[in-house]
Design a binder for these strands. Structure first.
Length: 265
DNA sequence: AAAATCCCCAACCGCGGGGAA
DNA sequence: ATTCCCCGCGGTTGGGGATTT
């Protein structure tokens, strides 16, 4: 059966937008506001599909867009956020006023990635390149983030006896004052043969925050019980030369540090 | 000066989530 | 509970300007 096309492709324009099309779109949105992208083209007299109109508006025509080169400060912010959020461009864009997810994505792929690589840092894992023994990597961890709640005071991490950990707010001046991560970190077995009973899960609950932004991050560890940092890619051994991952350090910096003597098991 | 190559970024495509029917 | 539809997201592409040969 299949999904019906979002528009009549034969009757829609593609490619670069003309000045006239831009003007029509802007005029229509100014008069009627955003929303209902599917019907917008027809009502605005545009031979474009709704998605194309939405994209044009969001990425180019919307008021308040910065455009122009990214500053060093913005680069730093993007790198930091990418180390904890991964390729969640829309979330990152939400933290950078005047920048769009598309713009940030492009900037990442064309500039920052290269910059990190030339500094010997893997842009995906934010780990140093070249010091990871073969076979140490485990598959990428799924990262689920609730986009509606973006509040993340810097926090401490408390590990309870039941294996759940609780984040407590320790610092009003957070690096991400509007980012709220309710992290559930599951430490499961690396290979499919490992029994689920070998895996433990600790839950990070920010009690002082609004209901949870859910960032479910599953990491893995070997059944032999090695320790792994819980950075974006997960699976590197902690406190070994293989783990030079500052993503975890960054994450913990935002949350505050683990209480002395406590370790993620 | 012309051709080849590189690079950037606007735009497209396909998919998943979520709400409505 | 299921299906359908719309919206938004992330990955990818390709046109065109910039740079190099």
């Amino acid at each position: 059966m299949g999904r019906s096309p979002c528009c009549e492709k034969a009757r829609t324009n593609k490619g670069a937008w003309t000045k006239e099309e831009d003007e029509r779109l802007v005029a229509y949105i100014k008069a009627h506001g955003e929303g209902c992208w599917r019907s917008l083209p027809k009502e605005a007299g545009l031979l474009r599909c709704g998605k194309s109109c939405r994209l044009r508006w969001i990425n180019y025509l919307r008021p308040g867009l910065k455009r122009g080169n990214f500053t060093e400060e913005e680069d730093e912010q993007i790198i930091q956020m990418h180390s904890s959020l991964g390729n969640k461009w829309s979330l990152i864009a939400a933290r950078l006023p005047g920048r769009t997810d598309n713009e940030i994505k492009n900037h990442w792929n064309t500039h920052i990635k290269r910059k990190l690589l030339s500094s010997g840092i893997d842009p995906q894992t934010h780990c140093q390149l070249g010091n990871l023994p073969r076979g140490q990597l485990v598959p990428s961890a799924p990262v689920k983030v609730d986009q509606d709640r973006m509040k993340l005071p810097s926090m401490g991490l408390d590990l309870a006896e039941d294996g759940h950990s609780t984040i407590t707010s320790t610092d009003e001046e957070s690096s991400f004052p509007n980012l709220n991560l309710d992290l559930t970190l599951g430490l499961g077995p690396v290979n499919s043969n490992a029994k689920s009973s070998n895996s433990s899960q600790f839950k990070i609950t920010p009690p002082l925050l609004p209901p949870p932004m859910t960032a479910t991050i599953m990491s893995s560890r070997s059944t032999r019980g090695g320790k792994f940092c819980s950075c974006y890619q997960f699976g590197y051994r902690i406190n070994t030369e293989a783990c030079n991952c500052h993503a975890m350090r960054e994450l913990l910096r935002y949350y505050g540090s683990l209480e002395q003597g406590q370790q993620i098991q």
